[in-house]
């Protein structure tokens, strides 16, 4: 029965994604994109990744919509009579090629929980993390333990990059305010 649910959900997400790509009016796109985000959060929840679903809920429904609306408020919204975007033939060709390549890769993935999955090519490493993650780091979730415990410096580097990007954005914005005065 969960296949039935996944099928209907997939149809919904596909329709939302196509509508997001096709619409011309920016405000409509923002609203339809929120619907797409709802579907994706359901997908993550259905695949039993509650942490990703929680992030998608916060980013997709909350932050993205607000940021896009704020941007729209500061800029101009193009008035248009046409409802849908004109189809860009070269873009469709490039996208079609990419889609074929990605679908070809998809067939090579092992099934969920399969014995020949990539994670079991090196069983000692996998078993080591599963057995010792809690004792080593004190974090109950093994994925979080690897991300923030064993690969702590890596994650710290990522945080530094994001922080510098934020600082750079603030500097640029400040400069713009000064030139206007």
């Amino acid at each position: 029965m969960s296949e039935l649910f996944a099928g209907v959900l997939f149809a919904f997400v596909l329709a939302a994604a196509l509508a997001t790509a096709a619409f011309r009016d920016t405000l409509t796109v923002i609203v339809v994109f929120a619907a797409y985000s709802l579907g994706m959060a359901l997908f993550y929840a259905f695949l039993l990744a509650p942490d990703v679903a929680m992030t998608e809920a916060a980013i997709g429904a909350g932050v993205t919509t607000l940021l896009l609306l704020l941007t729209l408020a500061k800029t101009v919204r193009e008035d248009t009579d046409r409802l849908v975007e004109r189809v860009n033939i070269p873009a469709v060709v490039v996208f079609g090629g990419l889609l074929v390549v990605m679908l070809a890769t998809l067939g090579e993935f092992p099934a969920v929980g399969a014995d020949d999955a990539m994670a079991w090519y090196n069983p000692e490493v996998t078993q080591h993390y599963i057995a010792n993650a809690y004792d080593d780091t004190g974090v109950k979730n093994a994925v979080t333990a690897v991300l923030a415990g064993y690969r702590g410096f890596d994650t710290f580097g990522e945080a530094v990059v994001v922080f510098s990007a934020g600082v750079a954005t603030l500097i640029v914005l400040n400069k713009e305010v000064f030139t206007r005065e």
């Binding site: 929680m54 809920a57 609306l69």
Partner: peptide, 24 residues
């Protein structure tokens, strides 16, 4: 699916969905 943790996501969504509608 027997996953009560999904209820937390449902709560987050109920709160943020309201915020989004108000903003738009």
């Amino acid at each position: 699916l027997g996953e009560p943790s999904l209820l937390d996501i449902a709560l987050v969504y109920a709160l943020l969905n309201f915020l989004m509608a108000v903003a738009i």
